[in-house]
Design a protein around this nucleic acid. Structure first.
Length: 370
RNA sequence: GUGCCUAUGGUGUAGCGGCAACACAGAUGACUGUGGAUCAUCUAUCACGGGUUCGAAUCCCGUUAGGCACC
C-alpha cells in the first residue's frame, strides 16, 4: 500500500542518520527542514525562489485550506501541487493542532472536533475520516493522522488525548483510499515518559511509512523536550523517518538530529522574517535596531543567499521600518537559506562521519538567546 | 502701533488647582505542526522668567514666538 515511500539510510553517526525518502514527487534527502506554507504559499516568497533555495519539502495546512478556498475547489483545480505550482513533495498537517491553537471555541468528543472558524465564525466538524477526505482532495505526498495535542503538563488530559489519538489513527488508516500518499502517525503524551512510550509502541505496531513526534516545543522546557525525543526514538523502528513537528531553531535542528530526527518543519524562519528578525549561524539579530541604520555590510558576511549577496543591513532596516513587503521577502530568503544550508551541512557531516564534531562546534558558537 | 486669542513628548491632541492621559512616530524585547497579526517595556522637570497657593500644565504679571482683527 505504501510502495514508493521507501526510506533508505545512507549513513549514521551516533543516533543521527542521513537518508533518502522516496515520494511521488521526487526523493527527499534527510535530515531535512520543511518551510511552512500554511495557505498554499510560503509567505512572501515564490516557488521559484524556494527552488533556488533548494527547499525539498513544503508543509501546507488542512485546517486553513479546508476553510478557504475549500479542498474540493483545490481538487477540481488538479490538487495542491498544481494549484500552488510546487512540483516537489508536499506534506499536509491534519488540522488537529490548528483546531486547538486557532479556533476560539471548539468541542472535542470521542468521534471528532466541532469548532468555530477563525475566519467567519461558522461552525464546522472534523473527524479523522473528514481530515483524510480533505487531505486526499488536497493531494499532498505525506498526510498526517488527525490527532489531539494536549497541554504538556496535564497528565490526565494527555491520557485522554492519547487514547483518542490512537483510536483516530486507526480510523484514518481505514478511511484512506489513495496509495500515492504516505500517512504518518503522531506520537503524543506531553512530558510523561510512560505515555510517550505507550504512544510510540502503539504506532510502531501499525507499520506506518513514517512517524511524527507531536506536542513538543509547546511550553515545556528544553531539557524536557530533549529527554522526550531520546525516549521516543528508542521505541520507534529504525528504518522509518521520524518527523519532529513544529520545531526548528538552528539549535533545535542540531540537537534534534543528534537524537534521531529526520524531518523538521517550523514557522520560525518565515515568521521571524516578517517580524524583523534575521537568523544567523550564531544567533538572531533584529534588523530594525537603530545600530543598523547606516550599516553597509549584509546581515551575515559569510552567507551566500541572494539577500546577503546584494543588500546592506541599512537597506533591509529601511524596508522593514517603511513596512515595505520586499523586506519580508528578503529576510525570508535569508532565514530559509540559513536553515536549509545548515541542514545540508549537517547531512554532509553525517555522511563524512564528522557529525558529532560539527554539532559540538556549532553549539559552542551558538548564542542561546534565540 | 492697538486689541483679542494660542503655546503640553518627534507629530497631533486631552487634562482647566491635587501623582500629566491618548493616538501615531521612535527605542528595546517576545513570537517554534503560521494571524504580514499581536503583545510587553521605555521615551515630557507642560515656551521662558516671576508671582499667588499647603499644592500650579491649570490662576495672575511680564517676556518671547505664532495666529486673527483693526489702524
Amino acid at each position: 500500500m505504501n510502495t514508493g515511500f521507501g526510506f533508505e539510510i545512507k549513513s549514521c553517526s551516533g543516533r543521527a542518520r542521513a537518508g533518502v525518502f522516496n515520494t511521488p514527487h521526487g526523493e527527499l534527502a534527510t535530515p531535512l527542514f520543511a518551510p511552512v506554507g500554511t495557505q498554499a504559499t510560503v509567505k512572501s516568497v515564490t516557488p521559484a525562489q524556494l527552488e533556488e533555495l533548494n527547499a525539498g519539502l513544503v508543509l501546507a495546512n488542512t485546517y486553513h485550506l479546508y476553510l478557504r478556498p475549500g479542498d474540493e475547489i483545490i481538487a477540481q483545480l488538479g490538487g495542491l501541487h498544481s494549484f500552488m505550482h510546487w512540483d516537489r513533495p508536499i506534506l499536509t498537517d491534519s488540522g488537529g493542532f490548528q483546531v486547538f491553537s486557532l479556533s476560539d471555541s471548539r468541542k472535542i468528543d470521542a468521534d471528532g472536533v466541532t469548532f468555530k472558524s477563525h475566519i467567519d465564525g461558522s461552525i464546522h466538524r472534523i473527524t479523522p475520516e473528514k481530515s483524510i477526505s480533505i487531505q486526499e482532495n488536497l493531494g499532498a505526498d505525506i498526510i498526517m493522522a488527525f490527532d489531539e495535542c494536549g497541554s504538556p503538563y496535564d497528565q490526565s488530559a494527555n491520557e485522554i488525548a492519547l487514547d483518542r489519538t490512537h483510536t483516530w489513527v486507526d480510523r484514518c488508516l481505514s478511511a484512506k483510499t489513495r496509495s500515492d500518499q504516505a500517512l504518518f502517525g503522531i506520537i503524543q503524551g506531553g512530558i510523561f515518559p510512560e505515555l510517550r512510550k505507550r504512544s510510540a509502541e502503539y504506532l510502531s505496531r501499525l507499520d506506518l511509512p513514517g512517524y511524527a513526534i507531536g506536542g513538543l516545543s509547546v511550553g515545556e522546557t528544553k531539557p524536557e523536550t530533549l529527554s522526550m525525543l531520546e525516549l521516543v526514538d528508542s521505541y520507534l523502528p529504525e528504518d522509518k523517518p521520524r518527523y519532529l513537528m513544529g520545531v526548528g531553531s538552528p539549535e533545535d535542528l542540531v540537537t534534534g538530529v543528534q537524537r534521531g530526527v529526520d524531518i523538521f518543519d517550523c514557522v520560525l524562519p518565515t515568521r521571524l522574517a516578517r517580524h524583523h528578525a534575521a537568523i544567523t549561524r550564531t544567533g538572531r539579530i533584529n534588523i530594525a535596531n537603530a545600530r543598523y541604520a547606516s550599516e553597509q555590510s549584509p546581515i551575515d558576511d559569510y552567507c551566500s543567499c541572494y539577500t546577503c549577496r546584494n543588500f546592506s543591513s541599512a537597506y533591509l532596516r529601511h524596508l522593514v521600518l517603511a513596512k515595505e513587503i520586499l523586506g519580508a521577502t528578503l529576510l525570508t530568503i535569508h532565514n530559509l537559506n540559513t536553515l536549509l544550508t545548515l541542514m545540508n551541512e549537517i547531512r554532509q557531516s553525517i555522511l563524512d562521519g564528522q557529525f558529532e564534531k560539527f554539532a559540538a562546534n556549532f553549539l559552542d558558537r551558538w548564542d542561546k538567546t534565540i
